[in-house]
Design a protein around this nucleic acid. Structure first.
Lengths: 217, 217
DNA sequence: ACAAGTTGACAAGAAACAATGTCACTTGGA
DNA sequence: TCCAAGTGACATTGTTTCTTGTCAACTTGT
């Protein structure tokens, strides 16, 4: 009835469209979440504390995420994807011929990444477990991804026939993570090179078990 | 003033003294906690749910524990101590000469213990992390204990000069645990012997690194 | 049988937090 | 200048849980 004069749905505000602003707020929440979760831990972090850190209010929180678990997953993905990319890039450096040296470079990048941003490290490595079934799946996937990346770097030819020993791979990645946790818990005392070397020793078990002593009798 | 006729502080009730009843209630809470935490997870478990499972009321809960975190720690200790003892006993079996076979027996006992009582396994292996600083310390300690036990079994002579490489040991134990988690998450599909063999491969990295390829350059 | 100790069911206060709503203020476009 | 969209501070509601308290029923030693 009343001829409304075109609501101008995508009106700009402070230079951005509605979509851009929404996306930026979402990013703000994710960055704030990484910080707050790292400081207080996810379970101790309230929605309000994240909103305060983001400089936004609860209203926008519930505009961006259905609940705090969704934010947790989103921020986990953000941190993980970023770290994973760094690791992959380090392993792909063209001046490394030996597979083990590639893995060493990857592990170094991994631990350096953790050291560079200590806050999220512990939260997203372990504290996350058991928050929800979906979150557990995310964590498992990220572990598997890292394991596959390492295995393919060591044995690029073997890629075709799937994961050779999933259980062993998970074990190695679990070890890498716990090494990180211990290292972090002691305040990054030991140098990254040493930590990476230790983790690299763990990776050696991926070698085909030629030792006769280890046959299953 | 009023000559009270000796309050009979240790009066018996249903055959037990006050101390005995208190201790029994405490045990009831711990057993109930293991069950409830295993079913619903620690964070989802309320004080009331534990009390209901224990067949006791909240009043006795707060008589036995200052808060739910204390119960968590107590039940963690109970489960861990029990499992640890089983593992140590398996490793001490006198008919095993080889250190690796002893460790295999220990790992088998470990995974069999987890399989026998699946409920507490996942909770006390990982979900615990980040609940509190004290709980984290408990978990770290139990991991260290297991690592030391394994190392001493493999190299009984080396006992004197302390932990040779704490970081590596933690990594191995972390791997053992993650193998367990993956195994459990897939519904105990693979036989215990296979899981233990996989974990045993991980333990091999404790061998002195003679491989020249692994020197730190 | 009686008094005091003991127990279980339940109530109730207090606190924390999720999730939604209100309202005055600011910004952008006509 | 004017109005609607947008924003931020704050209030409100509802739920959940911890924690303490009350009281009737039961048990024990005398």
């Amino acid at each position: 009835m009343t001829p409304v004069p075109a609501p101008a749905a995508d009106r700009r505000y402070k230079g951005s469209t509605a979509d851009e602003r929404r996306a930026r707020r979402r990013e703000q929440f994710i960055m704030a979440a990484v910080e707050v979760y790292g400081e207080r831990g996810y379970r101790q972090a309230t929605v309000k504390s994240v909103c305060d850190a983001a400089g936004l209010t609860e209203r926008y929180f519930y505009e961006s995420f259905p609940n705090s678990e969704a934010l947790l997953i989103a921020s986990f993905r953000a941190v993980t994807d970023h770290l994973f990319e760094e690791v992959a890039r380090a392993g792909a450096a063209s001046d490394l011929a030996d597979g083990y040296e590639r893995v060493r470079a990857m592990l170094t990048a991994y631990y350096e990444g953790l050291k560079r941003s200590p806050a999220p490290a512990r939260v997203f490595l372990v504290e996350i477990s058991g928050v929800s079934a979906e979150m557990d799946r995310e964590l498992q996937n990220s572990l598997c991804d890292l394991g596959v990346l390492i295995e393919r770097t060591l044995y690029p030819g073997k890629a075709a026939d799937g994961p050779s020993d999933e259980l062993l791979m998970i074990g190695i990645v679990g070890g890498i993570i716990h090494i990180a946790l211990q290292w972090i818990g002691q305040g990054y005392v030991r140098p990254v090179s040493e930590v990476a070397a230790t983790a690299l020793r763990l990776c050696r078990v991926l070698e085909p078990a030629a030792e006769p002593r280890l046959r299953i009798t």
